[in-house]
């Protein structure tokens, strides 16, 4: 090594390392984005958190664990599955003495279920979504004693689509997963 080369070397070496680093970084960006882009186009991505009503065990954590002050999980009522019973397992607590609207008789803690007489002996039930807190007590009642027409779903217009759903991390039955757009609601018909 001549003296002249030795003097020049630090700059040249740094520049060489810099170019090498740039090449590696550029290559990494190209390969990662190319590979993932190819795969992203292959299938529709799963972006929406939703509850599978078949798996849900109404543990009650949807009410308490959502990042929103009032959970984005709401009770949904499938009228076409409902039996329109007078003694509704979702509306009344078990062992009620009288079928009236006294709060101690009702399952819903917020009074979100509205009951309307249709014709003898049928009653129509409607969920007032603004009152529902997603606790799933009515769902448990309806699933155990009735047709299972009440069930929990994440309301897509309320959900913030967190990258990690906080309810999913504590969901006892693993019912909350990411689904594709056409599965964004899993409705009972």
């Amino acid at each position: 090594m001549t003296n002249n080369e030795n003097k020049k070397s630090p700059i040249a070496r740094r520049k060489f390392l810099q170019t090498l680093g740039s090449a590696v970084a550029g290559g990494a960006i190209l390969s990662v984005s190319g590979g993932l882009m190819y795969r992203a186009k292959r299938q529709e991505a799963t972006l929406y958190w939703q509850i599978d009503p078949q798996k849900c065990t109404q543990c009650g954590r949807c009410e308490t664990h959502c990042v929103l002050p009032i959970s984005a999980v709401k009770c949904i009522h499938a009228n076409k599955v409902c039996g329109y019973c007078d003694l509704c397992g979702g509306y009344y607590r078990s062992n009620v003495k009288e079928l009236n609207t006294a709060a101690e008789n009702l399952m819903c803690p917020t009074g979100a279920i509205e009951r309307q007489f249709v014709e003898d002996p049928y009653f129509e039930y409607t969920i007032n979504e603004s009152l529902c807190n997603g606790c799933g007590k009515c769902v448990k009642g309806c699933t155990s004693f009735g047709n299972g027409s009440l069930y929990l779903q994440i309301k897509r217009d309320l959900c913030k689509d967190c990258n990690e759903c906080k309810i999913a991390t504590v969901c006892a039955s693993g019912a909350i997963t990411r689904v594709a757009f056409d599965m964004a609601y899993q409705l009972k018909e």
Partner: peptide
């Protein structure tokens, strides 16, 4: 517990229509 349709679909005589509720995905 798993059985569905414990109660048959009611036969409405008063001409009751099922409410039409749709859920949109924004």
């Amino acid at each position: 517990v798993n059985a569905q349709n414990r109660f048959p679909k009611p036969d409405f005589e008063s001409g009751y229509q099922y409410p039409d509720i749709t859920y949109q995905v924004p």
